[in-house]
Design a protein around this nucleic acid. Structure first.
Lengths: 380, 380
DNA sequence: CTGTTAGCGCTTTCAA
DNA sequence: TTGAAAGCGCTAACAG
């Protein structure tokens, strides 16, 4: 740690200037200055010009806090997610950011680490800060927290996960995604397919499990509960559950994983147990593992339109805030797409295992509005 | 898109209650209620109890906006990064979040996409919102923006990148990291080592380049400018520059990449050109590719302590805000560690190519405060 | 077209 | 130990 000479901050004597200062400099009342600044109401060209000059002179910058207090509206949203380091939520958050910016809203991001207590503290703090609305990926059993939000009359929209009750929600099609993943394995000839699930307390995990069961039923298999495990959404959980499944008599030849982190855990477990993927055990999962799959396309996945989910949820929330909608709850379920890659030991239907790298270059790497990362490789 | 029955929001008649309401319900003045709520000044036990009851009765929640206006302090920081989807910045942001929360500050995250215009709009908006301080990863030539911040007298701390001038900064040791990466390749017998750099306009890229040159000099090699390319920090740039380098006469047998995204681009280019890694060309880079390297440890990297950088910068900023430090600029350069993996075609010094997967399990996957992802595997 | 006035919800002297 | 009053910076009636 090195320290260097003086910082040249707090030196200049430019006091922070208010509308009052502008008004005084322009010899008008604050209300006139206010009208001019906001561009509403009548201001004669002459006085307007004077105010303009005064503004530059004193270096005026409007104070959003004072405005908020006056308007009872902060133009600030919050996004509460359980795990910001999961690329899925990172991409969701870009969608939210872009959606919010488009209407001049700022976003406060909060990370609950799947802990309800932390979530509670955040929500409390956010309500005190008078956020105008909330984008919410709840963790655990958040019914109490939802009541709190209802009481505070803060509009909110669920993303990815929802709490029982009639609320706005933008979700991925979990049932169908899991069904597709499972069906894919079935079509490759697998007969014993295990499920390494997420947290059974949350709707997402239950739906993915339902999709898994659906695919098995459609294939005419009898459902074997011994092949199904649930824990939470962590790498450790995936590792643990996969080891478990490997240990049973007549173990599965393929695993459907509840999400990307769980899949990482499962893959580590398989490596550790000396199982080759996909020769010994095939693996597929929900959500992509972004950079990894760019370089080494090895894992067949069901990807949700994360950016779009964030974006739509934000639009919906802003509509609520502006009361641009009637009071019927919206439940927007977005489709999930399969990206077929080699972790299951079979080529894609068209004979390729994956779009060749060249198709990734030339289109932008970014999420929509800037091009599309997952979406790009997804739709090829 | 499905719509369902009525939402039960805006139904109840619990008006949002203010300190005034509490005071009235408790039959005291607002100033007394205020004193009680904040726990300062004298309030007799009897009245205190009455106020306590009144608070619960009316469901009081302090209004942070009004407080901010009064105190001229919002207890809000902002974090401006160029690319939130890069895991490096995601991890930095966790450090920032934890540091801020520890002192009851909220954080507004902003994503500039490496665009100065976008950055300017954000800074403007943040200043209007009266943030108390800024954590800043500037993009491009941000000197004008820094002047703006100075004028507004908002304290700020650079993270990862800095703008010439004497300001607080928490940085990775770019020179040494690049030196280590390059030295590693030298020690494996490579004689022609290329540099696929980042954006030469920014200090980070220049420093990494300097480290690269230093290692070559220490090895007694003559510096060959034909082996050095710079562009920006994108996958496309890495792809383009790597292809370029492959095309020269006597092309490099190894590449040092400026960061993880650039490396992804370079690897795609090598694949496309039919080069095997590491047999034909070895690749190393700055920053890890998190999940990827958990599953398939293939890329030797120099990792910076991202979480720690975010955390320290935040502590420093909060110290500035609270005027807990004298006015000397701090420049905190954190060491970079090498993780040796197989992308360069050689085992680690101790004969292993990588810590075995088992060592990752059992310790938590999270960043410090929750365990450590990169840091954990790094220090084994 | 412009200015006066009364707050938004909270804190903070200063008197009582 | 408590309360009255002023005001943070801005906006919005309402007169003029």
């Amino acid at each position: 740690m090195v320290t260097l000479p003086l910082i040249n901050l707090w030196l200049r004597e430019i006091a922070i200037s208010t509308l009052h200062d502008v008004a005084r400099a322009a010899r008008v009342s604050t209300s006139t200055a206010s009208r001019y600044v906001r561009g509403v109401g009548y201001v004669s060209p002459a006085t307007g010009a004077r105010i303009e000059v005064a503004m530059r002179q004193v270096g005026y910058r409007p104070n959003a806090i004072a405005r908020s207090l006056r308007h009872q509206r902060t133009h600030t949203l919050a996004l509460v997610v359980p795990e910001i380091e999961n690329p899925f939520y990172t991409t969701v958050s870009r969608g939210v950011e872009d959606g919010a910016n488009a209407e001049g809203y700022a976003v406060i991001f909060c990370n609950t680490d799947e802990q309800e207590v932390k979530q509670g503290r955040y929500l409390q703090a956010l309500l005190e800060r008078q956020i105008d609305g909330l984008l919410f990926v709840p963790c655990g059993d958040s019914t109490a927290h939802c009541r709190m939000l209802d009481d505070a009359k803060v509009p909110y929209v669920f993303i990815d996960r929802e709490i029982p009750g009639t609320r706005d929600a933008v979700l991925g099609d979990n049932v169908d995604g899991a069904r597709q993943l499972t069906h894919h394995l079935v079509s490759l000839g697998h007969r014993r397919i295990g499920l390494v699930g997420g947290n059974s307390k949350d709707s997402v995990s239950r739906e993915r499990r339902a999709g898994y069961e659906l695919a098995l039923a459609q294939a005419g298999f009898t459902y074997d509960p011994a092949l199904v495990r649930e824990g939470d959404w962590s790498i450790e959980s995936g590792h643990h559950l996969a080891l478990d499944l490997l240990g049973i008599t007549d173990p599965p030849t393929a695993l459907v994983c509840g999400n990307n982190l769980v899949a990482v855990g499962a893959i580590l477990a398989l490596n550790r147990a000396g199982c080759r993927i996909p020769e010994d055990v095939a693996v597929v999962c929900f959500d992509d593992i972004e950079l990894a799959s760019l370089i080494e396309p090895f894992l067949t996945v069901a990807v949700q339109p994360a950016y779009e989910m964030g974006r739509r949820a934000t639009t919906l929330l802003l509509d609520r805030i502006a009361r641009r909608r009637d009071d019927t709850a919206v439940r927007d379920v977005l489709p999930t797409h399969l990206i077929i890659r080699r972790s299951c030991g079979a080529p894609a239907p068209d004979g390729r295992t994956d779009p060749p790298p060249s198709t990734w270059i030339g289109r932008r790497y970014k999420t929509p509005g800037h091009g599309a990362l997952v979406t790009a490789s997804m739709n090829l």
